[in-house]
Design a protein around this nucleic acid. Structure first.
Lengths: 145, 145
DNA sequence: TGGAAAATATTGAATATTCAACGATTCCCG
DNA sequence: CGGGAATCGTTGAATATTCAATATTTTCCA
């Protein structure tokens, strides 16, 4: 008996997610290009924009980076004077991260670039589709954990 | 006037996609662990499983890798005797990639691991939600290009 | 209380990815 | 036809990420 052809890669959820993620990220990166900031740094800055200190562990989780990668990215951001570290007085194993004024100013510029991308997507793709997609993704993430 | 708080990172489509992609990929990687193969190699093998030769450019596009990264990954796979290169006789700039027998056998094992993951997701997340999500992702990708 | 175990962040070495430049081949048009 | 431009894949250097090991501090319980 001949072997039945397997489902093409393009029909796998994992592949569709990778493809969509890559494309959207690429577009966002293109918008961020003029600020010379990778998407991950925007995420970090955005999380820190509440002004509260966030530990490296918290941050790593929130910005989808593992610990060593985050440490090194934060090193670069400290060099660029975007963020700074403060040892946590409550638990001295922890380091609390804060955004500098320069970081906050950059965050605002990046936020508006990101919002303009979202607006562009909603326009081309439809408000309902966008909302549906977000809802389904949230629910998938929730189930997956 | 106080600055209005910006939309949290978790409400951005780009972030939701990154998060979902990361989680699903992580799960798939965990299943592939026993074969010691990264997800990208499964994609390559899967594309090559039609038995036709695929050029590096075609492959790079299909498996979401840029050219130099693919070249080096293919180098490793050639070392592992999973795939092999043949110069295209029609256009000698091109290299056609093929899966070896060993590669094909591995592909089948990986396919069944991937299918079992898909089944698991459909079960926990719902068949309708899964189908809807796939459809929305396909449509987003189409619009984004 | 004392000390083993756990949690937190960083480091250094190994590995992988990316960017820019290159070599080879084919295309195209004057 | 001839030769500049485009296409295709690879390479090497620079950069980034990951894994395992480490140092520090806190927690827990015997």
């Amino acid at each position: 008996m001949a072997k039945s052809p397997s489902k093409p890669i393009t029909e796998h959820l994992a592949y569709l997610l990778a493809q969509a993620n890559r494309e959207i990220n690429r577009q966002l990166d293109a918008r961020f290009r003029k600020e010379g900031v990778p998407v991950e740094q925007w995420r970090i800055l955005k999380v820190l924009s509440d002004g509260k200190g966030h530990s490296m562990g918290e941050l790593a989780e929130a910005v989808l980076l593992n610990h060593p990668t985050l440490t090194k990215m934060v090193d670069r951001m400290v060099s660029d004077a975007l963020v700074y570290r403060v040892q946590d007085a409550e638990d001295r194993r922890k380091v609390l991260m804060f955004s500098s004024d320069r970081g906050k100013a950059l965050t605002q510029r990046l936020n508006s670039l990101a919002l303009s991308q979202e607006a562009f997507i909603a326009e081309n793709y439809g408000n309902k589709a966008t909302a549906d997609l977000k809802r389904l993704l949230e629910s998938l993430i929730e189930k997956a954990n």
